[in-house]
Nucleic acid binder design. Structure first.
Lengths: 336, 336
DNA sequence: ACACAGCAATGAATCGTTTCATAACCAGCT
DNA sequence: AGCTGGTTATGAAACGATTCATTGCTGTGT
């Protein structure tokens, strides 16, 4: 036999299935003697509850879904950990899906979560998902957007002020006297990228004689960054920027690799470089990276907190926007 | 109404529930006209299948479970991606659990997967899990061990030859003329750590006048590595090793940070350093790290492949051990 | 005209758990 | 003895999708 059910346990213990269920779920309602009999039957048969049956009956799973842009990005693994810790405390499981910045995969994960009747969804969106989220909401599945401020105020969100972060990063580069700033990042459809760029532009526009060049990348990965770095290195010196703001640390690490290949460009003397996220590896880079720090785990736990609150609220729940301030971390890549 | 069921769809389309199910699962059995009616009913009601009900009926989920030692370690995210890609092709979902090198959490995830009646489990084990796995097997849930060779040949496994890798790393350090080798890693209960150390010891023992010191760490993280690095830096110069082999790249990156703090120890002149895994960040470190490369994604996809094969086999399945050879990658941290 | 094959559609039974109205029992009191 | 209140235990119903034996129908061949 592959698997024992409550019925088998009940038969062996000489009680009804309802009683077995009571032993499992409200032990205080059952006499000590019966509890003992049922327990030893459970042990003898190696009974394990069937989650599918429980969920079917309950109408809801004990999971919440999380879709991230890039599971390999330490920012998101930290965020996930924050969410998981909070979820574990609530006896919930977090299912992590990796959209890889792809709308199709994002959508596939939302489908899956909907079929699983998850308690709620945390989402760092790729494209325009608002219609999708409204559909989920109609189903009674609340959503919290992470790492994204919504213009649409009907959804809760937890984010870092990327506009301020972008401005902070560019202002820092400008304060070093650099004037030919390059922004490396993409795709522009990702809100964080657009916001960080907008913030940078704001800072650059405020300084006379400063110019901002945008170097688009396909994704926010080390590989994309390296390609961008190499293309900058291959330019004539006069046409290179004197400072680079990368949309995240993975890109920045790649840019650094690309620039330094074959004893190429000197960082920070020739080109200053700053990233974003302040992942653990930023401090350990060839040239330790300046960066904009975000409280990743806190974002995750806060998002889950909002989600639980929304799920608990009968109705008339007021969506909440939480925005954390970013923090400038200065290291060697913008010093000297 | 929160959610429509097949019954609702059937009623609206004016057919029986069985027909709706047929439209969903064997469209070729249903006439075009009825299919159309059912489809538009589905669209109108926003019907989404309830996965719990499907699973209950099917007796098995469409998921496979994966428990890793550290979800933040790029080696494991790569491995997970390899497994996911293969799973997606098979219309399966991978649930990733992070044991964080903790036996309790490992066990909790196995419990969860058992309750979910997953199709199979991929596991990179912390402690001695063999009894647990035998229990799963009795339930009909096959397991494949990843990143671990079993002495117990009754389970399939996919691993890299850690003994050879450890030997390779230490032999490389010895070939540079270094004789006071330190191994940084722990806990020793993790098989990879023990094997890499054993390999290193073998290489060291083969060279007259060479000595191996073991510096134990609590975990395989950047933070643990930094502590080890700092403690080495704080020793009198004569008592420092002249080469360090770190059990993985995260540790190595941490060691590097610890050594270099406050203009401390020069790598590789004073101390040569080699890591293990060759994660993407190894090449981007302050001093680009030599490392032992493992085909992480390939390990993941191969493991899933073995799992599928075992799940498909009626019985009398012959467990398979796959061992990939590691590869030495030499960078600046062991040159000069 | 009849039999029969072949295709479509049906709907009751099933998966395993939880819930809840009901029954059984006992103790204490009048 | 009869009644009440309070524990415990019972077992049928429900959750939603799938399956499969059965029915209904159409068309073909004799």
């Amino acid at each position: 036999m592959v698997s024992a059910s409550v019925k088998d346990v009940a038969a062996l213990a000489g009680v009804s299935v309802g009683t077995v269920s009571n032993v499992l779920n409200r032990p205080e309602k059952v006499s000590a003697e019966v509890t003992g009999r049922v327990q030893s039957a459970i042990d003898k048969l190696g009974f394990v509850r069937n989650d599918a049956a429980r969920q079917l009956r309950a109408g809801m799973s004990h999971s919440i879904g999380l879709v991230v842009l890039d599971a390999a990005n330490p920012f998101f693994t930290d965020l996930a950990r924050g969410a998981e810790d909070r979820a574990t405390a609530e006896n919930l499981t977090v299912l992590v899906g990796n959209s890889n910045e792809d709308e199709g995969r994002e959508s596939a994960y939302l489908d899956l979560f909907e079929q699983q009747r998850v308690r709620g969804v945390l989402l760092s969106p790729v494209g325009n998902v608002i219609p999708r989220l409204e559909q989920l909401r109609r189903r009674g599945i609340p959503t919290v957007l992470v790492d994204r401020q919504t213009e649409n105020l009907s959804f809760s969100s937890v984010a870092v002020d990327d506009l301020a972060g972008g401005e902070m990063a560019a202002a820092h580069l400008l304060s070093l006297g650099r004037r030919r700033i390059a922004f490396v990042g993409g795709p522009a459809s990702i809100r964080q990228v657009a916001d960080r760029l907008a913030g940078a532009r704001k800072a650059v526009d405020a300084v006379a004689g400063a110019a901002l060049e945008v170097i688009a990348t396909e994704s926010l990965t080390v590989l994309s960054g390296r390609a961008a770095g190499e293309s900058i290195r291959s330019r004539p010196e006069a046409e290179r920027p004197d400072a680079i703001f990368a949309a995240n640390d993975l890109l920045a690490i790649g840019v650094l690799q690309g620039l330094m290949l074959m004893g190429g460009v000197n960082v920070p003397q020739e080109i200053a470089l700053i990233g974003y996220d302040d992942i653990e590896f930023a401090a350990a880079a060839v040239v330790p990276l300046s960066s904009i720090r975000q409280p990743s785990a806190l974002i995750g736990s806060t998002a889950l907190e909002l989600l639980l609150r929304e799920a608990a609220a009968e109705d008339g729940f007021a969506p909440t926007q939480v925005v954390f301030p970013p923090e400038l971390i200065v290291r060697a890549s913008t010093q000297g």
